[in-house]
Amino acid sequence: MSSNQTPRTAPDSTRRSQRSRRAIYDAALALVSEVGYPRTTIEGIAARAGVGKQTIYRWWPSKADVLLEAFLDLSEQAARAASEDPQPQGIPDTGDVAADLKAVLRATVDELHDPTFEAPSRALAAEGVVNEELGRRFVSQLLEPQLQLYIERLRSAQEAGQVRPDVDPRIALELFVAPLAQRWLQYSGTISHEYTDTLVDYALYGLAPR
Rank of each mutant, 00 (worst) to 15 (best):
M1F: 01
M1P: 04
Q5W: 08
T6K: 10
R8D: 10
R8G: 15
A10K: 15
A10D: 15
A10C: 13
S13R: 14
S20L: 02
A27S: 11
E34G: 03
V35T: 07
T41E: 05
I42D: 15
G52D: 02
T55S: 10
S62H: 03
D65C: 11
S83A: 14
Q87E: 07
T94N: 11
K102V: 01
A103I: 11
V104I: 14
E111T: 12
D114R: 09
D114S: 12
E118M: 08
E118F: 00
L124W: 10
A126M: 05
V129N: 04
V129A: 09
V130I: 07
N131K: 00
E133I: 11
L134K: 07
L134M: 07
L134Y: 15
R136K: 12
F138H: 08
E144G: 00
Q146D: 00
Q148D: 13
Q148P: 11
L149E: 14
Y150K: 01
R153M: 01
A157T: 11
P165Y: 08
D166N: 15
A172M: 11
L173Q: 15
L173R: 04
E174H: 15
F176M: 08
F176E: 14
A178C: 06
R183Q: 05
R183G: 11
L185N: 08
Y187W: 00
S188E: 05
T190S: 02
Y195C: 02
T198D: 12
Y205F: 10
